[in-house]
Amino acid sequence: MNSHDWLNGNHSGLITIDGHDLFLRADGPDRIPSQPVVILESGLGGSSVSWPLVTRHLTPFIRVYTHDRAGLGKSEINPSSNQYEPRVYAERAAEDLDKLLRKAGVDGPFILVPMSWGGIVAREFLERRKDDVAGMVMIECVQERTTQLRPIDAPNTMAFLRGLDFFEVVGLKDRHRLTPEEWRAQLQEIAENGPQTAVETFAWPITELTLGEKKQFERQILGSRPISVIKGNAAREYHQVFEAGVAAGNGTEEQRIIVSKMIDGMEEKEDMLQREQLNLSSVSRFVQLKQSGHLVILEEPEPIAIEVQWVLETFSQEQTKGSA
């Protein structure tokens, strides 16, 4: 199922990889040989419907590819039994992406733009295709030490959302900039992706350990190719959930103590974890956003586009110097 010319025009469709169909979408200007294209990588349980706002801000100047990981969105679950072994889950997702792009005829250079846990998948893809990556723009990404330094007690935290709408509590329902149709699609996909989201949630901390074994920070794997790290304010959202839950009478006294302790100092830990990712390259910059919470891609596409433009220009300048 690969009848499209994936290098030209706007297309979406399924491509068969190892016995299962994966969804790919291409938007923006036709591919110019040797010019970078953007590869978007969704967060935990996310899929291509999360990216229309960002895509609209990128396609005026660069070609963009969005995909759904196996079992999410329009992509089928991989029939291979070891696909969902937690230890190799992110590695297999990166392998799927690698094969998907190769079968579509989409070569590097790539600018990787991952969101949240997608940062783990993107960096496993970087491990596979290091020489084909022009740079990265990392958006609120988790990394190999996130669970170790900033563990989240999900069951006790969720107790504070009983009877409440998370998107209302954190203000995203009013702040997001999707069209009404795109917002409905986002909510529908969250519901439909539930089973596979549970699989990815279980795998998450173990995939961090697998990535950590590769010591990408110590190796400075990107060399001098540029990286930008964009940080929202996820810690603020945990405080909002806690405060709204307490006001609604949710959570036992024990749960309030546990979650209060969990969110204490979270902002400082998040800042450190985000900044550590700058060590992937000797050429980097850090962007702290004021408005967005964790889901930057639904709120502030402009900084993302600016950082992709910076990576593109920095990479192009280095290529020009190298050929002079």
Rank of each mutant, 00 (worst) to 15 (best):
S3D: 09
S12V: 01
G13M: 06
L14D: 04
L14P: 08
I17S: 05
D18Y: 11
D18P: 12
D18F: 11
D21V: 12
L22N: 12
L24Q: 00
R25Y: 00
A26S: 04
A26Q: 04
P29W: 00
P29D: 00
S34W: 00
S47G: 02
S48A: 04
V49L: 06
W51K: 01
T55M: 00
R56P: 05
H57F: 04
T59Y: 05
Y65E: 00
D68R: 05
D68I: 06
I77C: 11
I77V: 12
N78T: 10
P79H: 02
Q83C: 13
Y84P: 02
E85V: 14
E85L: 11
E85G: 07
R87Q: 11
R87D: 10
A93L: 12
E95I: 07
D96A: 09
L97M: 12
L101G: 07
G105R: 10
V106D: 10
D107C: 13
P109Y: 01
F110P: 00
L112E: 02
P114S: 10
M115H: 13
G119C: 08
R123G: 14
E127P: 01
A134Y: 03
G135Q: 04
G135I: 00
M136T: 00
E140P: 00
C141N: 13
T146N: 14
R150A: 14
P155L: 09
F160I: 08
F160S: 01
F160A: 06
R162G: 03
R162Q: 10
F166E: 10
F166P: 12
V169N: 08
V170W: 08
G171L: 06
L172R: 15
K173D: 11
D174V: 10
R175N: 07
L178H: 10
L178V: 09
T179F: 14
T179E: 13
E181M: 06
Q186P: 03
A191R: 14
G194W: 09
T201V: 15
P205T: 14
I206N: 05
T207I: 11
E208Q: 15
L209D: 13
Q216G: 11
E218P: 08
G223Y: 02
G223D: 02
R225T: 03
P226F: 01
K231I: 09
K231C: 15
N233Q: 10
A234W: 13
H239P: 08
A244F: 01
A244I: 02
G245M: 06
A248W: 11
G249I: 08
N250H: 05
G251E: 09
T252Q: 04
E254H: 07
I257A: 15
I258V: 12
I258D: 08
S260M: 06
S260I: 08
I263L: 06
I263M: 08
D264P: 12
D264A: 15
G265T: 07
M266R: 15
E268K: 12
K269H: 10
D271P: 03
M272H: 15
R275P: 09
E276G: 04
Q277E: 13
N279M: 14
S282F: 02
V283K: 06
F286W: 08
V287K: 01
L289N: 02
G293C: 05
H294A: 02
V296G: 05
L298S: 04
E300Y: 04
P303S: 09
I304N: 12
I304V: 15
A305M: 07
A305T: 08
A305V: 03
I306R: 14
V308G: 10
W310V: 07
V311Y: 03
L312N: 05
E313R: 06
E318P: 01
E318R: 14
G322L: 05
